[in-house]
Design a protein around this nucleic acid. Sequence first.
DNA 1: CGCAGCCTTGAGCAGTATCAAAGTCGGTGG
DNA 2: CCACCGACTTTGATACTGCTCAAGGCTGCG
Lengths: 223, 223
Amino acid sequence: MVTCSHCLSEIEKILSGAHNAIVLDPHIHNKNSEYKKGEILFSEGGIPRGVFYIHSGLIKIIKSGNEGKEQIIEIAKTGDLVGFRAMLSDKTYNVDGVMLEDTSVCYIQKSDFMQEINLNEQLRNTVIRVLSKELQDRADLLTTMAQKTVRQRSALALILLDDIYKGNPINLSRDDLANYVGTATETVIRLLREFKKDGLVGIQGRKITILEMNRLIEISKLI
Amino acid sequence: MVTCSHCLSEIEKILSGAHNAIVLDPHIHNKNSEYKKGEILFSEGGIPRGVFYIHSGLIKIIKSGNEGKEQIIEIAKTGDLVGFRAMLSDKTYNVDGVMLEDTSVCYIQKSDFMQEINLNEQLRNTVIRVLSKELQDRADLLTTMAQKTVRQRSALALILLDDIYKGNPINLSRDDLANYVGTATETVIRLLREFKKDGLVGIQGRKITILEMNRLIEISKLI
DNA sequence: CGCAGCCTTGAGCAGTATCAAAGTCGGTGG
DNA sequence: CCACCGACTTTGATACTGCTCAAGGCTGCG
């Protein structure tokens, strides 16, 4: 694959998150590749030769644990950069990237990315800042996984998903939702039923609508 | 506090972990400060103005969760650099650093560290590589917390602690051990009793000796 | 229409947390 | 030197959360 020069020139904005809301003009910007839902972008053990910028779509970053049970580490959305941790660490991927829906991505080759980093001091500092910030966030997430109940984590997951789906109904398989929360599918279904009964969410088929964000936030924080 | 120029010149080795076994010559190296067991190096919300290099001792990095229950994110040992995530992210600390035993550290000021980074390309790349690698590792840890049983995590904790204590008996309060595993104190005590009964570990007072590393590894991996 | 893949529900169980109480150890002051 | 105090550790009993297994229902698609 060939580096998308347009995205290469934008990576600083992308990394700092400023890019999130920007819709690239398709006329000046040809997306590198399109993937169907369920297709695999990269998988554990593979050697990263570049990073991906999500032009549109959703990608789950998963770790396949014991007995095939997968844990969703992160859900990357439009405007996110994916795969840079493994690339920058000089290690193989330790997670898989799988499309949650039809997704189009741009590609930036490692050599191009590294050259850019070495030339651009500000970008370099951004990279370091972003990585460090994520490390801090993961300490919080670790604590959440270790200390909060499944009920609290489910509420939290819905809050995060509301952001990922930008306020639109959450459209995720129950399996994926359970793997995101870190629990069994049945458990997440039962909790959703409860949340619905209490008027916190609405459910249309597999789609979930947040009705009472404030109370979800309360639940996610309470012990 | 004043930057330890000796450690500043060594940070590349420190970061890449090569420093672990090196004993600095006390004649050419004056340690910046000594802390007693239980003393606080930094705490959540504080502004990082530099990083600490552990000359000798042990520091727990903790996140105080709900109702004061703390989660040990990491135990930093002799030769480790502490506090660089918050410093590099330009955020306040989101964790506390507390001495697990009497500890002496050196201090490197943020301005000195940053200057060094900007002058030294290799160091820069090391920083980026280390941060990315840690992010990868935390994805694994997250999966562990989400999917493994307390029994498995306890076995894993003992394996990690064996490394931290360099093969010497593990000397940690039961509370700290529980907070490292992410469970209740009573639970960890019961599991230790089991492990002892099965001949996996020996227990002398609060000290724990690993007897059957291979079987511990097996337990930590099994589902 | 029927199949396959999800989603949902129920029942029972195992693993852990919680609460309460007793035991141990090291240090301190009389 | 001894007895006591406080903090930490251990044990027991009980409750509950969340998992697993099993079965049935729904939906979209060939």
